[in-house]
Write a protein that binds this DNA or RNA. Structure first.
Lengths: 180, 180
DNA sequence: TTCTAATTTGATCATCCACTCAAAGAAACC
DNA sequence: GGTTTCTTTGAGTGGATGATCAAATTAGAA
């Protein structure tokens, strides 16, 4: 994979994989369907990826990274908004993330460990923001509020992906008023 | 399916299916594995179920029913506790429910509709309990609080299933103090 | 016990899927 | 233009899976 055309094909394969996984789930996504959607034949796929698993894992890794913590200085409001933005603007990636987190996390030890680490990082990020806004708050209460906020955000993100008419942003902002 | 042995076999098949789906997910659960776990041969399976899908759908329907609203008179605290009990005491069923809700809900229109109806019923149930405890609260705020509570409960249930050391009951009760 | 209907057995089938590979074609560098 | 390396093609392989079926066995009612 060194020529320009090869890299373009690789991108097309990953996009096709992401969209198919988002629409049909991890297991129902077949090599044949990926290749059709990417406009290539099977052999080309295996020229760029060693296996179906490798392509899917690449998509999954991208999805996890896309949710990931960025700015350690952000306020709670900004963090919540950024998560809503992610779900609203990168719906396919968000769907992949959610499916992998649940189906993968519950059935695959490696994914489970990765999800727990990812969660812990987000807890720290949100905890830092809450402590900055409410310096007087005790550590136990910070933990309770941050776990609650993140759980509610995840639950609402799922609701939003199930039901596009669910006003994720409003409800997410409402969370800050309840728990602020 | 009229003889006693047939009904027993049916039960064994459904238990095996439930446990395998809980451990490996919907798609990786094969007829062969179900039959081995149930201690039967393939032909017996097809004597009692028309297809693999029928067995899985039966398990899934049981799982959805198991989370379902029961008592219209229950307090918020009782409703929350009942949900925690369900997750703690029927872990396999809870895992099946979660996997179906996410993977199924995001990829299958029929399951999606079913999940949204189920969610709406739970919102009503929790809403009734909150209104009973806080008659002065406006309808918009009831909706915001109930959506937040249910989303957080679902998010925490997932966290608990990923991480058995997560103290679901304490955090769930903490939700009531934040939003009460 | 006898008879019928339900149940079990296990070989068999058709289909789908991930993956391989050798040959032909295209891209990049001299 | 020549050479090398990368890319594409597409038929083909092996294996697994869901499902079928006729024959043998067993449960239960009369």
């Amino acid at each position: 994979m060194r020529y320009r055309v090869g890299l373009e094909t690789r991108t097309r394969i990953l996009e096709a994989t992401r969209d198919l996984v988002a629409a049909q789930g991890l297991e129902k996504t077949t090599i044949k369907a990926i290749c059709e959607k990417a406009g290539i034949l099977v052999g080309s796929f295996y020229n760029l990826f060693q296996s179906k698993e490798e392509a899917i894992l690449t998509v999954v890794a991208d999805a996890i990274r896309a949710v990931g913590p960025d700015d350690g200085e952000a306020t709670l409001h900004e963090l919540v908004d950024a998560y809503v933005d992610f779900v609203e603007n990168s719906e396919a990636t968000a769907r992949v993330y959610l499916m992998v987190a649940v189906s993968g996390g519950l059935t695959d030890e490696a994914i489970r460990a990765r999800m727990l680490r990812h969660h812990e990082r987000r807890i720290e990020l949100f905890g830092r923001a809450l402590r900055a806004a409410r310096p007087e708050m005790g550590e136990d209460e910070v933990r309770q509020r941050v776990e609650s906020l993140l759980a509610a955000l995840n639950g609402m993100a799922f609701h939003r992906l199930l039901d596009p008419s669910f006003d994720f942003r409003s409800y997410a902002r409402g969370l800050l008023q309840i728990g602020a």
